[in-house]
Structures are given as C-alpha cells and as structure tokens.
Design a protein around this nucleic acid. Structure first.
Lengths: 142, 142
DNA sequence: GTTACATCCTCTAGCTACTGTAGGTTCAAG
DNA sequence: CTTGAACCTACAGTAGCTAGAGGATGTAAC
C-alpha cells in the first residue's frame, strides 16, 4: 500500500497533481485509511506512470483519457491509438516548423544589434515594424 | 480616430484581447466618446502592433512590457533589449531540442504499430513502459 | 503512552494569455 | 427615426497544474 507521497516520488509527480488527476477523473478514487488518507496499489502506480509518460510526450489530457480507455479494453482495435499518436506527431512537427521560423527571426534580430542605445536598437525596430519580418505568423501559440 | 474594432482588424487581434491588454496595463486607457466607446490614435495602433509581433515571436507579456519600456526611453542603452531577445532565442532553441526528441519517440511509436488490437499495440506499450524510452524527460511543458 | 514532526487532508485562489457569453447601450447609415 | 452592427461591463471558462492556509493523521523515538 503506497501513500500519495510515495506515488508522487516514484513517478516524478507533485502530490497536488495526483489529487488533481483524481478530481478530473483521470485517476480513480483510491482506498482510504480509517483516518481518510489515500492508499494506492501497483495498478494505480502503473496508470500514473502511463499518464506522466504521455504528458512528457506532449499528449493533452483528453488524448490521454482516450489512450487509457483503449488500454483498458484490450480487444478494441489498435488504430485509434495509432491515430492519436499520429495526430500528436503532426502537432509536434508543426510546432517545430514554427519554432524554426521564430529562431531565424530572433537570430537575425540579435545579430544586427550593434549595442548603441534604444533609439537605434535593431531589436526594437524589428519588433516595431512588422513589414521587415520574413516569416508568416498566423497563430501565436508556440 | 479608430474604434476598437478597427484596431483589432488592423492588427489581427480580438477586441477582447485589446481590452484585456488595457486591463493589465499593457495598453494605455484610450480616450472615449461621450457615449463611453474607446477611440484610438496611431500611437496606440503602433503599440499594439509591437505587442502582437512580439507575441508572435513567443515573447511573454512580461518581456514585452520591458521591451515597451525600453522603446519609450530612446536614450537607455540597448543591451537590455538585446538580452531579452537572446533569452527568448535560447528558450526557442531549448524547445526545439525537446521537440526533436519527442518527434523521434513518436515516430518510433507510430512506425512500430502493426495494426492489431489494443492488447498488442506498440503505442500503448511504449507509453506504459517508460524504460523503453530513449529520451530524457525532465520537464513537461513543450 | 506521549510527543514530535513529516506527511496527509480539504478548500480556495492563482498562474498565462486569452476567449466566450449575457444583457444592455451607442453609433452611423438610410 | 429606425435598424443593425459594433460597442460597453462584468463574469466565467480554457489547460494543466501549483501554492497556501489551517488543520488532521501516521509513525518513530523516547
């Protein structure tokens, strides 16, 4: 029987985060001691590890919920999980493209800064004048 | 004299976002009509464009606040702006490294999925078993 | 048996950067 | 003068946690 703190340490999660996952129904309500403290078994440890690993791969909680459902139903076809993973891969690739463009513009900005005062600052100038910008920006979330 | 809607259209911002920027002190309180509607001048248009462009480059609002302060004080030395931009560049590069690792793992997951049912699904298996994971994950934010 | 203290509990609020909605008012054109 | 788009305030909600207050519990040492 594991305390919430042990579970937290073993999976690299904050205690509050585990309670939060319980609250939103991602983790089950565990058994309690007479005094009301949570006690977990190995199944919960595995489940939390699954969640955390998925989070580290950037899956949103909704996707993780779907993946957990699939994982709980071993006879369901696999392509759904595959599709979720592909979707995530696509997202990651999009983000990378976007970051590449940002990096280019930031590099340009920084390189051209000659170190005078704010009036001649290239960094500020580039930010001020969008027309100098080489990259397309349609979305803001990076 | 520009309405808030015009300002929004010209800078690709939502009206609510502009009001939000005003609320947090990033945009100044503009003049009003007798009926209480906001009216802007070109200075505000420029300021908002500056903010938006900075946001598109991923600068957090706090950094933008600093950049705006610098921009308002043309005789202050430029290296502060340079430093903020460098910091941002570094962040972008870190995120890219991280995404690269994620992409590798996601690709591996997806490639190995043979299309059976959930019990044999490699995607789920990889997520379940962190030890198969090649990459280091210390932070979750991508 | 008691004391000390780490860990646990619930509840609430806060973070970033917005976005959406409800219910009502104003502006400009026809 | 009427119509309808655009404006107003105020509040709630989004993702995914994180932090703090104020108090209860569990366990090891004495």
């Amino acid at each position: 029987m594991l305390t919430i703190g042990t579970l937290a340490k073993r999976t690299g999660t904050k205690v509050q985060t585990i309670r939060y996952y319980e609250q939103i129904g991602l983790m089950p309500e565990p058994g309690r001691t007479d005094g009301g403290q949570r006690r977990y078994g190995d199944a919960e440890l595995d489940r939390l590890a699954f969640i955390r690993h998925s989070r580290q791969l950037g899956f949103p909680l909704d996707a993780i919920r779907e993946l957990l459902d699939l994982s709980d139903a071993p006879d369901r076809p696999c392509h759904e999980a595959d599709e979720i993973a592909r979707r995530q891969l696509k997202l990651v690739e999009q983000r990378m493209e976007r970051l590449k463009a940002l990096r280019a513009e930031l590099k340009r900005m920084v390189k051209e800064c000659s170190g005078g005062n704010a009036a001649q600052c290239r960094v500020l100038e580039v930010l001020r004048d969008h027309s100098e910008c080489l990259t397309e920006h349609d979305q803001i979330g990076v």
